[in-house]
Amino acid sequence: MPMARQSMLLWMARPARQTCRTMSTTPAGVDVRRRAMLDRIIRVDHAGELAADRIYAGQMAVLGKTATGPVIKEMWEQEKKHLAKFESLLPQYRARPSALIPFWNIAGFALGAGTALLGKQAAMACTVAVEEIIGDHYNSQIRELLEDNPELHKELLETIREFRDDELGHLETGMQNEAEQAPFYKTLTEVIKIGCRGAVWVAERV
């Protein structure tokens, strides 16, 4: 049946609907897109919490023995809890950690110590800038997870919501501790915000 043969050849020559690539590298039953999303979320959050932990460590190294010490210490303790949580979530979700962990480690410490050297107000301005970005970032993740499947991601959503509230609490603390009286407050916070956004972008990918 030549006609049938011809049609079959036509069908074979059609554009690929699904490439062999997804077929050959994906275990059955795993939603590739969802897995990639969770992988990205856990990776960037872990890197972010690590950097936050280092920022407060840097601030403590400079301001630890001043009157502001206890305020920073309190926030640092919360960040340590966040970090520990994401350290346990990484293997749980089988997410790949950021390859730039050593860099986030050093950069975070440098940012914390650097702003603390400019004075207590600058350290608080740094906190305000960083926590504002982190708050936004957590909010957009919450939106993304809700959009995907609120039931499935219930546990993760609760974690992120709780952490977001903590981070926004730190923002408040920063404001109450004269962040706005820092030298060049506007410029300083803008520069830090741009840096944070860039870091989030990179950590989601690398």
């Binding site: 350290e87 990484l90 293997p91 089988r94 790949r96 950690p97 390859a99 962990i101």
Partner: peptide
């Protein structure tokens, strides 16, 4: 590594 119980969270992972 996963089933061997690896829980590394830094450059060790790589």
């Amino acid at each position: 590594w996963f089933y061997a119980g690896d829980k590394s969270i830094d450059v060790d992972w790589y």
